[in-house]
C-alpha cells in the first residue's frame, strides 16, 4: 500500500478536470446544430408574402412515415394565397410520425417546404404535435404582406419563378444576410425567412422576427 493509494482512485477525476466538458447545459444553453440539421419544417413565402406551397401533396406522397396531410384549394381573384391556380388550403405535419428524413423536401416542386434547425419538438399533448399551416408558415419579413392578396411581382406565376430568386437575394442583402450555402440540398435554406432561422447564431433566435419561425411564437 503506497502513500498515494488514497488519492490514486481520483486520477481519472483529476485528469478529466482538464478536458473539454461534454455535458450539455440544455435547456439553459441551447445546442447549435449542424447547418443542415433536419429540424422542424417551414413553408416558405415568395418575396411579396404569397405562399410557395401549391398544395400538390407531393411531400405527403413522398413521406415514408405518412406524417403529412395536405388538401389543395382554388385561388380566386378575391382570395389569392399563392401565385397560380392552386394553393395548399390545409397543411399539417404530424411530428409524432415524422422521422426527419427530409424526403418531403426533395419532393417539393416549388421549394416551398424546407427544414429549419429547430429541434424542440416535444410536448405533452399529441394534438399539439400536429403542426398546422399557420404554425409552419415562414414569418412575414419586411416587404411581405399577409395573404390573401393579389400577385405583386407580376401578372402570372411565371414571373414569380423568373424574378423571385433575384428579389429574394436582394432582400437578403439588404438584411445583411449572406447565402453561405449555394448547394441547395435538403435543409439548406435559401429562403429569406429560413435564412434567419436556419443559419444565424443562436442569439438571433431572440430577435422578434425570428421567434415566430421557431414555433415558439405559435398561439
Amino acid at each position: 500500500m503506497g502513500m498515494f493509494d488514497g488519492i490514486a482512485g481520483f486520477g481519472v477525476t483529476f485528469s478529466t478536470m482538464f478536458k473539454k466538458v461534454v455535458t450539455e447545459e440544455y435547456p439553459l444553453v441551447k445546442k447549435v446544430t449542424a447547418p443542415r440539421y433536419h429540424g422542424r419544417h417551414q413553408l416558405n413565402r415568395h418575396p411579396d408574402g404569397l405562399e410557395k406551397c401549391v398544395g400538390c401533396e407531393l411531400c405527403a406522397w413522398a413521406c415514408p412515415a405518412d406524417a403529412i396531410y395536405v388538401e389543395g384549394g382554388d385561388n380566386t381573384p378575391e382570395a389569392r394565397y399563392s401565385p397560380g391556380e392552386r394553393y395548399g388550403a390545409i397543411y399539417q405535419i404530424n411530428y409524432l410520425r415524422c422521422i426527419g428524413c427530409g424526403l418531403c423536401i426533395e419532393a417539393c416542386p416549388t421549394r416551398s417546404l424546407t427544414m429549419t434547425n429547430e429541434y424542440e419538438l416535444a410536448d405533452d399533448d399529441r394534438q399539439d404535435l400536429i403542426y398546422t399551416k399557420e404554425m409552419l408558415l415562414a414569418p412575414l419579413l419586411p416587404g411581405m404582406e399577409q395573404p390573401p392578396h393579389p400577385m405583386r411581382l407580376g401578372d402570372d406565376e411565371q414571373d414569380y419563378y423568373v424574378q423571385g430568386p433575384e428579389m429574394a437575394r436582394q432582400g437578403r442583402e439588404q438584411a445583411g444576410e449572406h447565402d453561405l450555402d449555394t448547394d441547395n440540398r435538403a435543409g439548406a435554406n435559401v429562403e429569406p425567412g429560413a435564412a434567419l432561422v436556419g443559419k444565424g447564431p443562436l442569439a438571433k433566435r431572440g430577435s422578434p422576427e425570428a421567434s415566430g419561425a421557431t414555433g415558439e411564437g405559435r398561439s
Binding site: G55, A60, D74, E85
Partner: peptide
C-alpha cells in the same frame, strides 16, 4: 373535385 385530393389519398 378540383384540387381536393390525389388519387393516392
Amino acid at each position: 373535385y378540383r384540387f381536393r385530393s390525389r388519387p393516392f389519398d
